[in-house]
């Protein structure tokens, strides 16, 4: 575990391409609303995520994309169907998953490094090893020198960077991100997208990235799952064959614009006036 790269490469050899790391089959989720009505949040969801893949899930609010992520994370149980991670059915939160929420959800009384080390502490991993790993991650996101700061001393973007390091601190194979940059301003968001690409290529994690921004979904992903609301279902899964590494220049490419347009057209009937996005 001294060099994460070696271990991850070994993982890749052990699990041949094609064997999905995340498998969602026949998933349905119903809620009972406050007025006692039965609400179908998700239905007929079948999805496979390959090891090492970056998958974006895009859709308007109310399409159940966050619910989907919470079920994959083991925070919510499905009504029908099942979810498995690496062949094992999900019955609760797994140590092999790291999560980033829209809010940074940092603990205000912990320093940056103690926040980032929280999952490793909760899972009783070796402190010295996890500290070294977290320090490397913080360096990777440009937070070197901020280890002893408290969350209230950081900007929103910096807080979210800490949350990303925290999600990766226990070296999980899966990273789930629920609109992680939704609360950030456009400039910071673009910067964070680039950094996330950087982290992803460095760490080789399997990422499920929930967003309502079409360009963000396309820019980051290998595939984009397009979801439509009421009830939440998968409209189409779109392959993104833009070359990597992707840079700001990617955003100006014609093929990038075409893909965005295609997804926008898929979503347009479900949300009137969405064309401007």
């Amino acid at each position: 575990m001294t060099n994460p790269h070696i271990r991850l490469v070994a993982d890749k050899v052990a699990a041949p391409d094609g064997a999905p790391l995340i498998r969602v089959a026949g998933l349905e989720k119903r809620f009972t609303s406050r007025h006692g009505e039965d609400v179908v949040a998700l239905t007929g969801i079948d999805l496979e995520v390959r090891r090492g893949e970056f998958l974006s899930v895009v859709g308007p609010s109310g399409c159940g994309k966050s619910t989907l992520m919470r079920i994959v994370a083991g925070l919510l149980g499905p009504t029908k169907g099942n979810v498995s991670l690496d062949g094992k059915p999900v019955t609760g939160p797994s140590n092999d998953v790291g999560i980033v929420f829209q809010a940074a959800t940092l603990l205000a009384w912990r320093t940056v490094i103690d926040n980032a080390m929280l999952p490793a502490q909760l899972q009783r991993l070796d402190p010295a090893t996890s500290r070294a790993r977290v320090e490397r991650l913080l360096k990777l996101v440009g937070l070197e020198g901020f280890e002893r700061k408290y969350p209230f001393e950081l900007s929103g973007g910096m807080q979210q960077r800490v949350a990303i390091c925290r999600a990766l601190s226990h070296d999980p194979s899966i990273l789930l991100m629920d609109e992680p940059f939704g609360a950030l301003d456009a400039m910071t968001r673009e910067q964070m997208n680039l950094e996330l690409m950087h982290i992803w290529s460095d760490e080789q994690k399997t990422v499920v990235f929930i967003t309502h921004s079409i360009p963000e979904a396309v820019f980051l992903a290998d595939r984009v799952v397009v979801m439509t609301p009421r009830p939440g279902r998968i409209a189409r899964i779109i392959e993104v064959e833009l070359p990597r590494p992707r840079t700001l220049a990617t955003l100006a490419e014609a093929s990038f614009g075409e893909l965005c347009g295609k997804i926008r057209a898929l979503l347009a009937p479900s949300i009137p006036g969405m064309a401007h996005l």
């Binding site: 919470r70 994370a73 083991g74 925070l75 939160p93 140590n95 998953v97 999560i99 929420f101 829209q102 809010a103 959800t105 603990l107 929280l118 999952p119 909760l122 899972q123 925290r166 226990h170």
Partner: peptide, 11 residues
């Protein structure tokens, strides 16, 4: 969200 976060990380 913080309660979810704690649960997700195995607390």
């Amino acid at each position: 969200d913080q309660l979810d976060m704690m649960r997700a990380f195995g607390a």
